[in-house]
Simulated assay, not measured.
Amino acid sequence: MKKEELRSLWKERIQAYRESGLTARQWCAENGVSTHRLYYWLRRQNSAASAPASPSEWMRFDVTDGPEDKASLTIKVGVCEIEIKEPLNEKLLLDVIRVLESRC
């Protein structure tokens, strides 16, 4: 069985288990599955769902005018916020972007 087929099968099984209202032991006995295997796939599915976002996803940023009418750039990543005011140091901005790409 291919990896995608196996993942799809276990996704269906986990959904059936959750909808059944049975304990893991009862559901496994009725469906001929070991509880060890069910718990393995539950952990695997939960870890995949809570995995961090892919670094290739786009991030939102706003360009606003500062109080002295100088342009500024604000980059927000999670709870972090980076504000860059004019004059723009392009090398510094590229360095910041490289660090963000490696961390996000």
Rank of each mutant, 00 (worst) to 15 (best):
V33F: 06
S102I: 00
W41Q: 02
S8D: 13
N31S: 08
E4L: 08
E83M: 14
H36E: 13
L100E: 02
E5V: 04
I14Y: 00
L100R: 02
Y39H: 13
L73D: 01
W10G: 00
A48M: 01
A16E: 14
C80R: 15
E30F: 03
T23C: 03
E81N: 08
A53H: 10
L9G: 06
P87T: 04
A29R: 13
I75L: 15
E86P: 08
Q26I: 02
W10R: 08
Y39F: 12
N89K: 11
R103Q: 14
S56I: 00
R60Y: 02
F61R: 05
D65E: 13
V77G: 09
S102F: 01
R18E: 10
K76F: 08
E68S: 09
K91W: 02
R43C: 07
L100W: 04
H36P: 06
Q15T: 12
E30V: 00
P55E: 01
Q26P: 08
R60K: 09
I82N: 09
L94D: 04
G32R: 08
L42P: 02
A49E: 06
E86Y: 12
C28Y: 05
L88Y: 14
E19A: 12
N89Q: 09
L38T: 04
I14P: 00
A24K: 09
S20L: 03
S8K: 08
K85S: 06
T64Y: 13
